[in-house]
Design a protein around this nucleic acid. Structure first.
Lengths: 227, 227
DNA sequence: ATTAAATTTGGCCATCTGTTTAAACCATAT
DNA sequence: ATATGGTTTAAACAGATGGCCAAATTTAAT
């Protein structure tokens, strides 16, 4: 046999791949075990032979996807890049990853909200505090320079995640809304790789330069009068 | 009868409210018509009497929620506030709204991704291009001052949505991760009302001051050498 | 009070869905 | 060839599920 066809893959692997596709597309509740069997081209019972139940099969798929997603974040906290380089690296790499896996954010967010118990065990290993503490310590000099305190790290980390994950979580919405304005989603994402990085860096550099609330109030009320 | 009990509400209204709760909690696929009837305290058949089917009931609920969500965005584009005031207004009001309806983002994003056909008709009325064009025209002076072109508006609008919607779409995740670091989700959101506004304003003011890519490369490579 | 209409109920049905069971199939070793 | 053990299939099961219907009950009009 010279070609590697679907049938050359082990049965268990084919089940897993078909299940991954279906679960991502329809979610746990919306997926039917028959759909998965059909897509894998085999009898329904085989899924029970290799994975005891729909739930166990889902858990296996979910764990794989969650790990895949998490591993992508790791490189940001390694290497001796400057903070700005890390930010650019993060947005470029993470958005590229999501371009290749555009349905992952919606899938993960939905399942996490729908079945929180199920995901607790995956989260047990992650200590996000260490994560931003590490990032803060590595770049204390730069952050001090910008007047960013350690207490702001949760806001900053979640902001970075927001900027990459949201467009994909809301992809269908954006495709629909952008369509009428002649904007292509792919172009938008491509542009976002640099926009998000520029945006992030610019915000960090200047947000605590002076009290933004006061500054804006004073400066802008003048402008307003002119209108 | 001196008290307004659940039974005083019209049947149709009670169905609608129970359905809203269940659909938001479990999604269309995860919801059972029996659950809704139980929560409304009535016979299953009544749901079919007032709404012909599960799908029609869902559509009614979905439309209400979508409208509720959309109406909250409108005030941002009215009034003669300055751009900065509008930004602060948006983050304060929108995050407050989401605090009261924390499950709406996850629900909406999930259903939009899961059943795109269903939502197309709701989106048909919305012209997002007009929306950001309006915002741009209203604040052309300020935006020019910051070197923000009209082409950047899609990125800016979606960024604002990201900053408010994502934390709620990922609420379960954040609650779990924050928990270990002793951070309360509610405090985080409260802080976010000003953080997101400051962050946004700071970014807009400075991101095109010079070419950020070049500036950062030069300035930061010096810092890096010191390490 | 009588009648007609609207509302509510319980029971039922056809279908779907995850799971189980038993038989068939197949490769390998003896 | 036969036996063995792992693999695959068809059939069936039990419980759930959305929808339907006919009877019962309530409400409103005359």
């Amino acid at each position: 046999m010279q070609f590697m066809t679907d049938h050359d893959k082990q049965t268990e692997e084919r089940i897993f791949e078909a299940a991954t596709e279906v679960f991502i597309e329809k979610g746990l509740d919306g997926s039917r075990i028959q759909d998965i069997a059909d897509r894998a081209g085999m009898n329904k019972s085989l899924l029970h032979y290799y994975y005891r139940s729909k739930d166990r099969l889902f858990d296996a798929v979910f764990e794989m996807i969650a790990m895949k997603m998490l591993k992508k974040f790791a490189p940001v906290f390694e290497g001796d890049l400057t903070l700005e380089e890390k930010i650019r690296f993060f947005f470029r790499e993470h958005l590229s990853f999501l371009q290749k896996n555009p349905r992952l954010p919606a899938f993960l967010l939905n399942e996490v909200n729908r079945h929180p118990e199920r995901i607790r065990k995956f989260l047990a290993n992650i200590n996000i505090e260490n994560l931003w503490k590490m990032l803060y310590d590595q770049h204390k000099d730069e952050l001090d320079q910008y007047n960013i305190t350690r207490e702001k790290m949760p806001q900053i980390i979640t902001t970075m995640a927001s900027l990459t994950v949201f467009p994909f979580a809301a992809k269908m919405l954006l495709v629909e809304l952008f369509g009428k304005a002649g904007i292509k989603f792919d172009d938008y994402i491509e542009e976002r790789k640099t926009f998000a990085a520029d945006f992030m860096i610019s915000a960090l550099k200047n947000m605590n330069r002076s009290n933004p609330e006061d500054e804006s109030k004073i400066k802008k009320n003048d402008n307003k009068k002119k209108k």
